[in-house]
């Protein structure tokens, strides 16, 4: 009488491993979920704001040229900004479209999943932005497609419309 189950020996030997690039493939397929990247509290976030404001000022001066006749109407697009920050008390959106000034755009939230959201109509072009959490923490949108160093060791998210 032999009670040994031959399947116990053979079936485990059929096990195969995932291909080496499997985790990368999964990563590429994950849906974009806005992620909060918290900067150290000790670092002030003012420098990038000042740099951005200066850049906008220079750009504004540069663009003060004689009016061009019959300029085409720029197109615009509604953009949804989203940040997961369930513990936050307040989230603001700060960017080139606010002249890097705070207090203009506050996100609604958090919802049941901890997300803060706001929808904006932005003109075509290139916009830089970041999130300001609880008035003092600068949060980068790390899942934005493009980023740019602001010269102070941080990254601003870039949105191309």
């Amino acid at each position: 009488m032999n009670d040994h189950d031959p399947l116990e020996d053979l079936l485990p030997r059929l096990k195969e491993s995932a291909p080496k690039d499997f985790a990368r493939r999964v990563r590429l397929g994950l849906p974009v979920r806005r992620r909060a990247v918290w900067w150290p509290e000790g670092l002030a976030w003012a420098p990038p704001m000042v740099a951005g404001a200066l850049a906008m000022l220079l750009l504004t001066l540069f663009l003060q040229m004689p009016p061009e006749p019959a300029a085409p109407e720029p197109t615009a697009r509604v953009v949804r900004f989203e940040l997961l920050a369930s513990e936050a008390q307040e989230v603001q959106l700060v960017g080139s479209f606010t002249q890097w000034e705070t207090g203009h755009i506050r996100l609604q939230g958090p919802d049941a999943t901890g997300h803060w959201t706001v929808e904006l109509t932005l003109p075509e072009g290139r916009h830089e932005y970041g999130f300001l959490v609880d008035g003092h923490l600068w949060v980068s949108d790390s899942l934005a497609e493009l980023h740019r160093e602001d010269g102070f060791g941080r990254l601003n998210a870039i949105l191309e419309i």
């Binding site: 059929l14 096990k15 195969e16 491993s17 995932a18 291909p19 499997f22 985790a23 999964v26 990563r27 994950l30 979920r33 806005r34 992620r35 909060a36 997961l84 369930s86 901890g114 899942l143």
Partner: peptide, 25 residues
């Protein structure tokens, strides 16, 4: 859950073999 895909990648690396094997079988 907080939106960190790199953390989820750790879960993928841990369980990719069992998931792929089951799906292949």
């Amino acid at each position: 859950l907080e939106g960190d895909p790199s953390a989820f990648s750790c879960l993928v690396l841990r369980y990719q073999d069992v998931a792929v094997n089951l799906a292949r079988r």
